[in-house]
Amino acid sequence: MPRLSNTYPPKRLATNIGEACRAARVEAGLTQEDVADRVGIATEVYGRLERGNMTPSVPTLRKVCVVLNLSADAALAIDKEAKLPPRPPATESGSDEGASAEHRRLIRRTKRLPRRQLRVLGIIAGMLGEKGAGPSGEATTSAEEEARS
């Protein structure tokens, strides 16, 4: 095993971490917002991390590695070829891992809504699902449906 030098430049470390995180994120098909949300940090902070403009704390780096299924050895440029075994598919019913970026964004925004607004959104979604969509993609009302009959 090669001996590590004590003179490793912090900027180079930050750059290596950022490059490894970006590559793993792109491979996973996630957006920066997806990763930041799952790690529990601001999207802007994660963006700075990916650009190599900051070095994360050890707990944050661990969370990022878990979310991205990224080897810490690869992130820290100790072994750039280090790979973790593929993660089994999520079976959690509330998981958004198989959703498109647009769906994940909608899920994140929905989670932030106050309870009252969430109830209203649920009613609207139910109405859209029951009545179907009209030619323009908008929900049709019962009067419109009767007029078409």
Rank of each mutant, 00 (worst) to 15 (best):
E27D: 13
R108W: 04
A75K: 01
A77C: 03
L84Q: 04
H103Q: 14
G134A: 15
R51D: 06
P2Q: 13
E50H: 05
G122K: 04
N53S: 06
K131A: 15
C65Q: 05
A36H: 14
A36Y: 10
I78E: 02
D79E: 14
G126R: 11
L121Q: 07
L30M: 15
P114W: 04
L121G: 15
P59I: 01
G47A: 12
R119M: 11
V67P: 05
S136C: 08
Q117W: 05
M54S: 14
P135T: 09
A143L: 15
T15C: 05
G47I: 01
C65A: 15
G137P: 10
R115W: 04
R105W: 00
P9K: 08
T15D: 11
M127D: 07
V35T: 06
V39I: 08
E19C: 04
K11C: 01
G98E: 09
G134V: 02
R148M: 08
L106P: 09
R12F: 01
M127F: 11
G94P: 05
R119A: 14
R109D: 05
S142G: 06
S95Y: 04
E145L: 15
E19W: 01
K131N: 14
A133E: 12
R38D: 15
P86N: 05
G132L: 10
G40W: 05
L68P: 00
R109G: 07
R12T: 09
I123Q: 12
G132C: 15
D34Y: 04
I41M: 08
D73K: 15
A101N: 08
T55A: 11
G129N: 14
L128C: 15
G47F: 01
A90Q: 12
I123N: 07
G29A: 02
D73Q: 13
E145C: 03
V64P: 02
P59V: 07
S5E: 08
G132R: 10
R116A: 10
K11W: 01
L13M: 10
E146K: 09
L30C: 04
